[in-house]
Computed example of a mutant assay.
Amino acid sequence: MNAATELKAPLAPAFLDTPTVDDGGAMWRIARDSRTLDLNSSYSYLLWCRDFAGTSVVARDADGAPVGYVTGYVRPEEPRTLVVWQVAVDAAQRGRGVAAAMLDHLAARVAVDDVCRIETTITPDNAASQRLFTSFAERHGLPVEREVLFPGALFPDGHDSEVLFRIGPTV
């Protein structure tokens, strides 16, 4: 599979690519500006682009600048499971299917390594993420299981509960 995938309208001329450490700063800014994601340190985005680029994707505009990303990793205890950590799209690109295209692209890329399940956690008030992952499962004819993975009481900072969405398996 090609490292970069061109997107068709309404996304053209954007394309999907594997992130590099040069993208880390832009990814941090997209997360910060989302005002909904938990913002990790800028260092963590650089590290993510170095160590988990193969299980992540970045959407680029016509000039090659990042306008969205999905970060993920393969669970060490379950090597057929991709955990999606964050999905973010620049405000100017939202509503164009960028997040869905990135998720589809990443799922297809990791499937060649026998990854057949996706997990992510979503807070109960994040309707957009719930729609994204539910529609992904529907598009691919996959079952979705939901359960609270981390109750809010576990978080020392008043964070809401995180609900695990387990999608798949594909086989």
Rank of each mutant, 00 (worst) to 15 (best):
N2I: 09
N2P: 15
L11I: 07
A12E: 15
A12F: 14
P13Y: 13
A14L: 09
F15L: 05
V21G: 03
D23L: 03
G25W: 04
R29T: 07
I30S: 04
R32E: 13
S34R: 03
R35K: 15
L37Q: 07
L39C: 06
L39S: 07
S44P: 00
Y45V: 01
L46A: 03
L46V: 01
W48M: 13
W48S: 11
W48L: 12
A53P: 04
G64I: 06
P66S: 05
Y69P: 00
V70S: 06
T71A: 10
G72T: 05
V74C: 08
E77R: 06
E77V: 07
R80Y: 11
L82N: 08
L82F: 10
V83D: 13
V84T: 13
V84N: 09
A88Q: 01
A92P: 02
A92V: 06
Q93C: 14
R94H: 11
R94N: 10
A100E: 09
L103C: 07
D104V: 03
D104H: 15
L106E: 09
A108I: 00
D114S: 14
D114V: 00
C116T: 15
T121M: 11
P124H: 10
N126R: 05
A127V: 11
R131I: 05
R131C: 01
L132A: 04
T134E: 15
T134P: 05
S135W: 08
R139M: 06
H140Y: 13
G141R: 09
V148G: 03
F155V: 00
P156S: 13
D157I: 03
G158Y: 12
D160T: 02
R166W: 00
